[in-house]
Amino acid sequence: MVDALREARRILRPRGILVDARPDSRVVAYAEHGAATGTYRQAGVIATSHEELVNDRSSDDAVATAVTSGWFRSRGAGRFWHRVLFEDRPTLQRYLDDHARFVHRVRWMVDPATRRRWDEDPWAIRRAVRHERFERL
């Protein structure tokens, strides 16, 4: 990862901008139930998988190395939320089963009967994305 940042610096002109954006594993994601009104309500919490937490920490370390090495300086950072919509709850669960980003089990905030009642309704995963802009030094 440090090699990739070194190479990004090489191909950028002085004062060029590097944008680094990735899912923010420092905050949990949410399983949300979609109401008929089109709004979504938190129904569970989804943690990031251990492997992805380790990957994210490696990325953070690489960025820190690039900054302390004097390759880049931060020009601002932020976070936004992104909602991935699913047709129903089984589809959401299949996504969790098939993708490595999150743990496969939701920590539910609603009881099983309510979840079953909502099975065929729209669902979403709302997750945070963090980003930082760097100036090439």
Binding site: I11, V19, D20, A21, R22, S59
Partner: peptide, 14 residues
């Protein structure tokens, strides 16, 4: 080449 780009984006890459 060195310094060719103005902006580099690493979106979901690192």
């Amino acid at each position: 080449a060195d310094g060719y780009f103005d902006v580099a984006i690493l979106s979901w890459t690192l």
